[in-house]
């Protein structure tokens, strides 16, 4: 037989808080989340339209002008989200995405963990060395691809030095293709690890809050929700 006891909300909250595992802290501010999902959606459109423009699929009879327009528009969106993230990082003085030497020193240990030679990952700042390398490289190659895209969009009217440096339209196209392959190879790794390593971090990318292990010497009665 089901019995239901009605408790007052503050009391219920307190009971839940006492029973919560670890601490809940704000991990991803709103602008980071907006950037993450906005950039992710834009990138999906950019890569899929780019591949369609590169090699039209048999089963799709798409209007190519519209595909090109979508490719360019979402590239601008992605750049906008990137600027947003950059500004946010400047305002908050957030350097969590910039790899530092001390981060990279942990890289071999991290690889040992991923190859099952260690039972736990090495200590890290907000992001581990592998994440830092991949995220930072994404920023760089995306900026490079956007720049090359701009050069090819202007068809040699502007940024002529880029054409000379790279060696022509075909090379610009080739580099952009290789960059898209890099994204296509690393994004699944990112998704896989975010689903299987620490699911609460994935939750943080939606709600903003993440569960962390309890701090040492933490009192039981200490308020845990921050």
């Amino acid at each position: 037989m089901k019995h239901s006891v009605k408790l007052r909300k503050p009391l219920l909250k307190q009971l839940k808080a006492d029973n919560l595992k670890g601490r809940i802290i704000q991990s991803q501010p709103i602008w980071v989340r907006i950037f993450h999902w906005g950039f992710a959606i834009s990138l999906v459109v950019i890569i899929s339209t780019g591949l369609q423009l590169h090699k039209p699929a048999h089963f799709l009879a798409l209007n190519f002008s519209k595909v090109l327009v979508a490719h360019i528009v979402f590239s601008w969106f992605a750049l906008g989200f990137l600027v947003l993230r950059f500004t946010d990082a400047l305002i908050r003085k957030d350097d969590s995405l910039i790899p530092k030497i001390r981060d990279l020193k942990h890289f071999p240990k991290l690889m040992a963990y991923y190859f099952f030679l260690r039972s736990s990952p090495p200590p890290a700042r907000k992001y581990n060395s592998g994440q830092l390398l991949i995220y930072f490289s994404w920023f760089l190659v995306f900026l490079l691809a956007s720049f090359l895209g701009l050069a090819s969009y202007w068809q040699g009217e502007h940024l002529i030095w880029v054409w000379h440096l790279v060696g022509g339209f075909q090379m610009i196209r080739w580099i952009k293709f290789i960059i898209s392959i890099y994204f296509l190879a690393t994004i699944p790794v990112h998704i896989y690890l975010s689903l299987t390593e620490d699911i609460s971090r994935l939750q943080a990318m939606v709600t903003g809050y993440e569960r962390k292990p309890p701090m040492k010497n933490e009192s039981k009665n200490f308020p845990r929700i921050k």
């Binding site: 595992k21 296509l184 190879a185 690393t186 699944p188 896989y192 299987t196 390593e197 620490d198």
Partner: peptide, 29 residues
């Protein structure tokens, strides 16, 4: 990449890493 991820999933399941990580990071109470 697909082969690497599939291999990692299988090994992680065999070693219990995925189960452990999910329990550690998803249990609410």
């Amino acid at each position: 990449t697909s082969v690497a991820i599939t291999g990692h999933v299988v090994t992680s399941l065999y070693k219990g890493r995925i189960q452990k990580n999910l329990l550690k990071t998803s249990a609410k109470t």
